[in-house]
Design a binder for these strands. Structure first.
Lengths: 216, 216
DNA sequence: CCTGATGGAAAGACAGGTCTGTTCACTTGA
DNA sequence: TCAAGTGAACAGACCTGTCTTTCCATCAGG
């Protein structure tokens, strides 16, 4: 929960040829464990968690079932590991992109929606894995909700810091408002299969942030 | 898609003791078909669609399995019927509440978030069934996505009409912006189990709408 | 009033398949 | 040598969907 400072360090973009991929499932898997995580991530995100069976996962991963159960105690544990890996990869990508943006805090917050748009425009965009997981396991499995909480806390903390820099009246309220816009853009773009909802959200955010300090 | 006028007629609130319930699963089921729909709706929404088996549904409904398959061709058909029934009940409740609001179009749009807050505050709030269904069946079952599209079109049409009344520049853009806020509030409130996200969204909407016409 | 037909639903067995998770003998590469 | 992985079989539970049998309420004809 104090997580933001301790999160994945911002990648040194210049050190690598290209920015890391937001999609963990596309990272080149080296170990058997990574192959399983990668295959499971792809299948979970595209076909749903319950609808994806262990046999399908190992077939895609090209590993034996015993190997899967050597690395993960159960399917639930695998789901949690996938969310953790996918969340970490996404945050590395997302905050890495944001870290390259310079300018006033308002502009950096608005840049959030430009980065989101790139995410939405990916042909493999399938919504936020955490939102989808909470939707599927509404009541059961509190560990999944907890993982989603941690993930969302990263964004909230980043936005709150920016809001404090903006010297607005109630930075936490402002951060929550932007979080709502981000969640809404994610869902709307997923449903309509239209990345431009990121720009609709950006438009709202721009007017909102400008309206917060009319006497600027 | 021209759907708004043709949707469920606004209920005559004064004719009934209380407003209809947003939750179809709580409507008193009369026929066997309604008992099945009601039980399935409750279970689907709380435990997920794939995770809920036919046997669990008929046990809760108190009906026989043959009865279920007499009324619904398959589990998928039952899912679609549940979404239709739940969506219709929700829209009757939601637009019924909105129909009671008088005032400027801006105020009526802001009232959306007050109604949402009441929805979120219900102990049985489980998010939007359509958002959850699309999250679970990301790629499969286009009928479910189509049902979600129809459902969302109702709100968009309502918001677009209000935006036109407001005489804003680009009413469709404004309506999409509010849709994003609504979707975001639904998801954020579901994740945090905190209905107050409706008011965070309302705060953003208020500043946004005010900022649209600074020369009012 | 009584009798018998009809049709919807209950109860539950059943088929055929899939699910998760276990086990074990064998292989491979460091 | 030895740890890790493979392939395959297996158990037991659960899944969807079908089918048969029994029950019961309603209604028609007498």
């Amino acid at each position: 929960m104090t997580a933001f400072d301790a999160r994945d360090p911002a990648p040194a973009i210049s050190d690598t040829e290209s920015a890391p991929d937001w999609n963990f499932a596309r990272h080149a898997p080296a170990t058997a464990r990574d192959k399983i995580l990668s295959a499971a991530s792809h299948l979970f995100c595209h076909n749903g968690f319950s609808a994806t069976g262990i046999d399908t996962i190992i077939a895609r991963a090209g590993t034996a079932k015993a190997t899967l159960y050597n690395h993960f105690a159960s399917k639930d544990a695998l789901i949690e590991a996938v969310l953790e890996a996918e969340g970490a990869a996404w945050r590395r990508w997302f905050f890495g992109r944001l870290g390259q943006v310079r300018g006033r805090p308002e502009d950096r917050v608005l840049a959030v929606f430009d980065v989101l748009r790139d995410w939405f425009a990916d042909e493999n965009y399938f919504g936020c894995p955490f939102i989808n997981a909470v939707a599927e396991f509404e009541t059961g499995n509190p560990a999944i909700r907890a993982a989603a909480d941690v993930h969302k806390a990263h964004l909230f903390t980043w936005l709150k810091a920016a809001a404090i820099e903006m010297q607005v009246d109630r930075p936490e309220d402002v951060a929550r408002g932007i979080v709502v816009l981000v969640d809404g853009a994610i869902v709307a773009a997923q449903h309509a299969r239209n990345p431009e909802f990121a720009l609709d959200a950006k438009g709202v955010a721009a007017v909102y942030l400008a309206g917060l300090r009319p006497a600027r």
